[in-house]
């Protein structure tokens, strides 16, 4: 039983479709779509309407976030409201080139998926999504990832930045601070500066 979520970025209602139904919805919606194409109706990974991202990219981001920080014995990135947080950041924090690089990163993920599996990222089954994300991360963090002459350099840098805000969005959320890790707003004067890890328990979120 998880605590009620008061996170400002969390949805009021979420529907998780199974991966197989996601794939079916995607295929039915638009066979052979273009990466990030705004005219394509995406599978519903998170039941929320983006303000800044296209629906397709937003749902791709939701799936990506949940794969990075999944629901386990504690809620994952979607319950923590990470996709909505990042969608909001595009207007309230990101400069235009950062926004473009995040969008390019999401599109590149679709391109990697399409090349390997003939479908876009959120249309793939579990195993293909995992292998796609592994290959994609290898490209984004590999030794060639920082080559600015690479055509995908901005997208790769975009993914590295996107992953950082996915982590921030999760570990600053109420879920991340109170269920996954721990956080005290007012630790108090008796908080110990040097204490056994075994007594403190989990890592502090912040």
């Amino acid at each position: 039983m998880t605590a009620p979520i008061k996170n400002r970025f969390a949805s009021t209602r979420r529907s998780f479709l199974s991966r197989s139904s996601v794939a079916i919805v995607g295929v039915l919606a638009l066979p052979g779509g273009l990466a990030g194409c705004s005219s394509k109706i995406p599978p519903m990974i998170v039941d929320a309407t983006p303000v800044n991202l296209t629906a397709w990219r937003f749902q791709t981001l939701a799936q990506l976030s949940e794969m990075i920080l999944p629901t386990t014995d504690t809620p994952g990135a979607i319950t923590a409201g990470v996709p909505q947080y990042i969608d909001g950041l595009l207007a309230s924090w990101a400069k235009p080139e950062t926004r473009k690089s995040f969008e390019a990163a999401l599109d590149m993920l679709d391109n990697v998926a399409s090349k390997a599996h003939g479908a876009e990222f959120i249309e793939l089954g579990d195993g293909a999504q995992v292998s796609t994300l592994e290959a994609y991360e290898a490209a984004c963090f590999g030794k060639d990832a920082y080559d600015k002459t690479d055509a995908d350099a901005a997208a790769k840098a975009g993914y590295r930045g996107l992953k950082r805000v996915i982590y921030r969005g999760y570990y600053h959320s109420e879920v991340g601070c109170t269920q996954e890790l721990q956080y005290e707003l007012n630790p108090g004067p008796n908080a110990r500066i040097d204490a056994p890890l075994s007594e403190v328990g989990r890592s502090w979120a912040l």
């Binding site: 794969m67 920080l69 999944p70 995992v130 592994e134 996915i166």
Partner: peptide, 18 residues
């Protein structure tokens, strides 16, 4: 001690990473 964001700057995802 480094926090969870240390894992954001390298490849890896999923339950084990979390």
């Amino acid at each position: 001690r480094l926090g969870p964001d240390r894992l954001a700057n390298q490849p890896g995802f999923g339950a084990q990473n979390k």
